[in-house]
Amino acid sequence: MLRPAREADKEVVRLWRNHPQVRAVSLTRDEITPQMHDAWWDAVQSDDTRQVLIYVRHGVRSGVVNFFDIDHKRRSAMWGYYLDNEGLELRGETLPAWIEIQRQAVKYADAELALDTLSGEVLDQNAAVRRMNRRNGFEEIDTQEREIDGTTVIVHTIRRTHPSATRQS
């Protein structure tokens, strides 16, 4: 289940984002300080082009989904997500949670946000996520080289177009 993030979720979202495995596949790898996170959190709360959702698995907070650059007129948005790697690993639920969070996010984008286009970015090295993206209807539409922490990496832009959007053309 996905639900809106609440104030009580703020610190756990920061802790999940700072997990070494999450940082290793992020486009920004700096550790997020409490002050940086507070500023981001406050900005998100008053920004109607963003939604932060908590993924709840078996009654336990297990991940976060970020929708941003939401454009209701164009029916498009960007997105990203990450999991409570440590907690899910301890419960032996990492793989099913990883599959489920992406499926739920896509359903939310379709049903709740009424998006025609959902885009994101993924590192070339993150082969497992790239395969999951393809299974959920995302296409890699662009590839760029970027510098992250002094290293050149390959970043793929992904896009999923809702099937009804192609019929409206």
Rank of each mutant, 00 (worst) to 15 (best):
I99A: 07
V129P: 05
G87F: 00
L53I: 01
V129L: 14
A43C: 04
F67P: 00
R135G: 03
I32R: 12
R131K: 13
T151V: 06
K73H: 12
I154Y: 09
M36Y: 01
P96Y: 00
E145Q: 14
S26Q: 13
R134F: 09
F68S: 11
T28I: 10
G120D: 14
R130N: 10
W98F: 06
I154K: 14
Q51G: 03
G59I: 05
V65G: 02
T28F: 13
H37M: 04
N136F: 15
W98Y: 10
L53P: 01
E31F: 09
L88S: 03
G59N: 06
N126L: 08
E147K: 10
V44K: 04
E112K: 12
H58M: 00
L27W: 04
L118F: 08
M36Q: 15
A105Y: 05
E140S: 07
G87N: 00
T49Q: 12
T151Q: 13
V44F: 06
A128P: 11
F67H: 08
R61E: 12
L113A: 10
L53Q: 08
H72L: 09
Y82R: 05
A39C: 09
Y81D: 09
A111W: 12
T49I: 02
I32Q: 09
F138R: 02
Y82I: 01
R131Q: 15
D116W: 15
H37T: 03
E31G: 01
E112H: 13
R50Q: 11
H37A: 04
A43P: 03
D149C: 10
I148L: 12
Y55F: 15
A105D: 02
D84C: 02
R74Q: 12
N133Y: 12
V129K: 02
G137P: 01
D69R: 15
P96R: 00
V52C: 01
F68T: 06
V65E: 03
F138A: 03
H72W: 10
R50Y: 03
R103P: 01
I101N: 00
L118V: 05
G137W: 08
T151G: 02
E139V: 04
V64T: 11
K107D: 15
V44M: 13
I148A: 11
D116A: 07
R61V: 08
D84Y: 04
T28C: 10
I154H: 11
N136T: 09
E140T: 02
F67Q: 08
E147T: 14
F67W: 13
S46V: 07
Y55I: 02
N136K: 06
V106N: 05
S26P: 02
L123Q: 04
V64F: 06
A127Q: 11
L53D: 02
V65M: 07
D69C: 13
